[in-house]
Design a protein around this nucleic acid. Structure first.
Lengths: 109, 109
DNA sequence: ATTCATTATGTCATAAATGACATAACGATG
DNA sequence: CATCGTTATGTCATTTATGACATAATGAAT
């Protein structure tokens, strides 16, 4: 038997940040493109874009600096705010994972 | 902004115990009847029964001692194993809730 | 001005989870 | 041995979440 957990942030009752959005932002950061990120994650561009938009709305913050046109068609890079959110979330999640596992052993083994 | 989490136990990749099942077992324990418990929780008997059955299968353990017939038609009471599981889960969940909140304040405030 | 790969967005389809419906089986009680 | 409220279980419907499709807009580069 093992323990599984999901953790996310909410603002006014709607999801503001979660694991899926973390992965998406990471991919955008690495690839410089929302379109490329969506492909890498095996989801449609539409779905990826919707997640970014939903997060921005929930947080009232801009996550991406986007450009269109030119050779390559444009791209997207994370705002400073997005980078900070991503960093905090990752550290927090990691910490909770450790604690969850530690306590699980204490209670169930 | 606030943090939300869900935590559950899995055995061989399938859910073995979770918050909903906790509430169901608590209601059965209090009411002495799966049917009454399902009504209290606002779910169909079928759904409640399915949860119990799924849990028993996942854990390979018997959770309820059931009787049918007689005045009142029968009923269900928790086995010792179910009581122990319930107790452990509640304590564990409580502990994780405290830690999650504490760490949230530390990281995001 | 044309091109091109991107971002932007509305609408529709599909899948997965959840619950509802119907019906059988049970068995102590009277 | 008929009754009654419970447990037991298959099947069907509904809701909800997720992704797919289609199409427009953008704007630097050529």
């Amino acid at each position: 038997m093992k323990v599984i957990f999901k953790i996310w942030l909410e603002e006014n009752g709607v999801v503001a940040f979660s694991e899926g959005r973390k992965m998406l932002l990471e991919a955008i950061d690495r690839l410089g493109s929302l379109n490329a990120a969506s492909k890498e994650l095996g989801m449609s561009y539409r779905a990826a874009w919707g997640k970014v938009k939903a997060t921005e709305k929930a947080l009232g913050a801009k996550l991406l600096n986007v450009t269109t046109g030119g050779k390559g068609g444009g791209g997207a890079v994370l705002t400073q705010e997005a980078k900070e959110l991503l960093s905090k979330y990752k550290k927090y999640k990691k910490r909770i994972a450790i604690l969850t596992e530690k306590e699980f052993k204490r209670f169930f083994k």
